[in-house]
Amino acid sequence: MANEVISTEQNFLRVRNLCKSFDALKVLDNVSTDIHLGEVTCVLGPSGAGKSTFLRCLNRLETPESGEIICFGKNTLTRDYDIRSLREEVGMVFQQFNLFPLKTVLSNVMLAPVVVKKIKKAEARELAMSELEKVGLAEKANSLPGTLSGGQKQRVAIARSLAMKPKLMLFDEPTSALDPELVSDVLDVMKQLARDGMTMVVVTHEMGFAREVADRILFMADGKIIEDDAPDVFFDSPRTERARAFVEKML
């Protein structure tokens, strides 16, 4: 039911006045923004800025203390909101890949469609194989995660999320745990996804990727979004001193 609504609306998520603290530390301080369908949003900023926490609030892996995240008129942060139906539509890729180590690559990708969406196994296998082909790892279907390189693991993790046919993909520093020479494999897959029109929110330190692929940059510092720009504006003429210093340091 939620699917139909989501696919017709432009504003996927409306985030309003999000606040979150860990003990005394204010990690999110009145964060408000919108996530639009079909857009690639890159979240940049120094470490400790609250980027990952912000991302994790979007599918409620982290519960904010106050604020609203509205998904088609419903606040996802209320207790009676069925967060699992939203999570079925929102894929997430983690820095540490988090592949299920005892399951083969194929089983990793098949698991959620079978268990959550109750798709028949044969069907799920085909679906999983086609997602693995997309990330170029079909020949690894029967390997165990332990035998893969970091880049391959992350591509499997992406395929695993895609197998749920999400409307939105969240990436939490997907290349930060990778050896430098493996980063481009993962970024290439993400670029292809973006070209295919996937809505993405990407927390990253890959400035080249952000500049090339993003439709929009959110720059965060001290728990606030302090810039919300098109990439060329952000990289060429940042408006705040904070952002200018950040861009200079990163480029």
Binding site: N59, L61, R84, S85, R87, E88, V90, G91, M92, F94, Q96, N98, F100, L111, A112, V115, V116, R160, S161, M164
Partner: peptide, 21 residues
């Protein structure tokens, strides 16, 4: 590993499904 459970949750699995699988 807590990351495993979190990943399960992010895929829409219930707590019981996460426990079993």
């Amino acid at each position: 590993d807590g990351g495993q459970k979190e990943t399960g949750a992010s895929l829409g699995m219930t707590n019981f499904q996460i426990l079993i699988h």
